[in-house]
């Protein structure tokens, strides 16, 4: 009995001794690790600063050569002949975004209502992941689809339309953002508590009335936030419009024409034999900062709506 106790106390003392020997190392690790982790967390901040710095640096030197007014008020974009009016590119981007939202909003919202209000649990479990596959398909594949399938199909309807046009690119951008609207809106609707639904159903409302008069208003902020976020994605989408919308800066709102967006010009400008620090090289940054501001505003708006108008139950 006594022996055993000695044994135990010996081993505990041993452990403490061993522990003390390692304590210096442990303390060092305990002090260094948070510093290392903090530095890693700093990389994301540095990335943001880097984006702002690079965009601003080249844009400012661009605006020394081309005046601010010429850039934002000019209506002729032809950088290889020194015309830097960005309006046609902005018009192209807005046109694509409008078409995309016209496609994605009704389909995405209807799918969200079906999944959240009508579908059985099993159907939801199957359909939602399949729908989300659409969001994981690379954009270059969508571009291929727009050019080789959607455009030729649309040419049956608009017989004089060229193969490169805003309509097919816009429709396919819309298809790409359907799962974003559907999935995020469905999440918002799912967060509406069932007691509200039961209350309305108990008063004799149909499922449709529950969906439109109870769930939609209650989930409104989440739905709007998802649409704004999807809009931001559509504005920043590059490959689909580069492949399918053509490369013709065109101040038009006619969807059957070939156009160019902000993003597509950045690809065109960077891809060619643009020499470092030439005016065209700098112009892709001026276009880039315009695009960045557009999407940043949309993202902030989306977060603001989601937070400001959120209803807690």
């Amino acid at each position: 009995m006594v022996n055993k106790r000695d044994n135990i106390s010996y081993s505990v003392q041993d452990m403490i001794k061993k522990n003390k020997k390692n304590k210096g190392l442990h303390n060092l690790v305990e002090k260094l690790v948070p510093i290392f982790l903090f530095l890693c967390a700093g990389v994301s901040v540095i990335t943001t600063i880097g984006i702002l710095f690079t965009l601003l640096r080249e844009s400012i030197s661009f605006f020394r050569e081309i005046s601010f007014a010429d850039f934002y008020l000019g209506t002729h974009w032809s950088p290889w002949t020194d015309h830097f009016g960005v309006a046609p590119l902005i018009a192209g981007t807005l046109l694509i975004t409008c078409i995309a939202i016209c496609v994605a909003l009704p389909l995405g919202l209807a799918a969200a209502i079906y999944l959240s209000e009508y579908a059985s649990e099993n159907a939801r479990k199957v359909i939602k992941p399949i729908l989300e596959i659409l969001a994981g398909i690379p954009t270059v594949v969508y571009g291929f689809f727009a050019l080789t399938f959607v455009s030729p199909m649309l040419q049956y309807i608009f017989t004089d339309m060229r193969i490169f046009n805003a309509l097919s690119a816009g429709i396919v951008v819309g298809i790409m953002i359907i799962p974003m609207i559907a999935s995020l809106s469905e999440d918002a609707m799912n967060a509406v508590p069932n007691t509200l639904r039961d209350g309305a159903l108990g008063l004799g409302a149909t499922r449709f009335e529950v969906a439109t008069k109870v769930v939609l208003p209650a989930a409104f902020s989440g739905i709007v936030a998802s649409v704004v976020l999807a809009t931001s994605r559509a504005i920043g989408e590059t490959m689909i419009v580069t492949i399918a919308a053509g490369a013709t800066p065109n101040l038009t709102f006619n969807p059957t024409e070939s156009i160019q967006t902000l993003t597509a010009f950045i690809v065109q400008g960077a891809k060619g034999d643009t020499s470092y620090l030439s005016t065209i090289y700098k112009s892709i940054y001026a276009v880039g900062i315009t695009l960045f501001i557009f999407t940043l505003l949309m993202n902030i708006l989306s977060q603001y709506i989601a937070r400001r108008f959120k209803e807690d139950y």
Partner: peptide
């Protein structure tokens, strides 16, 4: 971090 996730990929290309 949230805002970086919303920056268009092509802007990362410019960076």
């Amino acid at each position: 971090v949230q805002n970086l996730a919303g920056v268009p990929s092509i802007v990362f290309g410019l960076l």
